[in-house]
Amino acid sequence: MLEKIVALSRKASPWVAHFNSGGCNACDIEVMATITPRFDVERLGIQLKGSPRHADILICTGPVTGQIRERLLRIYHQMPQPKYVVAVGSCALSGGVFHGCYNVMGGVDQVIPVDVYVPGCPPRPDAIIAGIAKVLDKMQEDALSKDGREREVDHGC
């Protein structure tokens, strides 16, 4: 019972960590723009946090480069359960314009599981907020479901 309450209240104020997994900065400045006055996600209780150890949601931008792959895994493992991942931007979805480049993995979901995909190059801040709102719905579903949510990637870093 108590766990259910904790899980439901998590939805009221999720903390978000942002990680650039090799993107071009365009999505990153749009993610930053979501916390500035025009869009202001803090009114939804969402806070951008520096450390993945405090975060419920990881926002990933970028196609995942060879050098960043291990760090992305490590950051994912550092997040507490339950963890959610939002892939922001075309190249985080599939590699996008960088598809086939020699140093690119081709999407965040090649390395870690992704819950919500936000397309666009870059997506508008409104779209990013809509993506986060989708995760909040998912959080509620998981909180109300019988066995909650426990998940970990198998391949270690």
């Binding site: 480069t65 060879g66 050098q67 792959r69 020699y102 140093n103």
Partner: peptide, 12 residues
């Protein structure tokens, strides 16, 4: 520029 895991002697 190349990642640490890039094979030696291979030049893109």
């Amino acid at each position: 520029v190349l990642p640490d895991s890039w094979p030696e002697g291979s030049y893109p």
